[in-house]
Amino acid sequence: MFDTKSTMSERPLSPHLQIYRLPITAVLSITHRITGVILSAGLVLWAVFLMAVAAGEAQYASTQVVLDSTPGKLLLWAWIYALFFHLCHGIRHLVWDTVHGLERNTLNRDAYLEIGGSVLLTLMVFLFALLRS
C-alpha cells in the first residue's frame, strides 16, 4: 500500500524496546507468551512420556530415571510454575475480554496479585505432593 522508503524515512520513532524500561504489565504480557511457548515445548515431552508408559515397563524405566533425577524434578516444577503463571494471566485476559479490570489505577495491583497467585498455587501443589508422597 505504501512505499516504505519514501514514507518512513523522516518520521520520528516511538520509544524503542531496547531503551524503554518495560512496565510490569508489559513484562507480564510477554511472559504470558513465553510461558505459552515453554508449555508447548513441554507438551512434546508429555506425549513422549505417555508413549513410554504405553510401551511397557522396560521402556518406561529410562523415563522414570529422568523424572526421579534432580534436573528432571526442577524441569517438572518449572513447567508447573509456567502452567500456573499462564493460568493466572489467562484468567486476567478472560476478565479483560468482559471489559473489566482495565482501570489504570488497579492494573499494577492486579499484576502483583497475579504473580503472587501463581507462586501461591505452585506452592500449594508442592505441599500437596509433599503430603501425598
Binding site: E57, Y60, L67, G72, I80, A129, S133
Partner: peptide
C-alpha cells in the same frame, strides 16, 4: 498439575 506433581518416585 496435582497429578504430574506426584509422578517423581512413582512405580510403573
Amino acid at each position: 498439575a496435582c497429578s504430574i506433581a506426584l509422578l517423581p518416585g512413582l512405580e510403573y
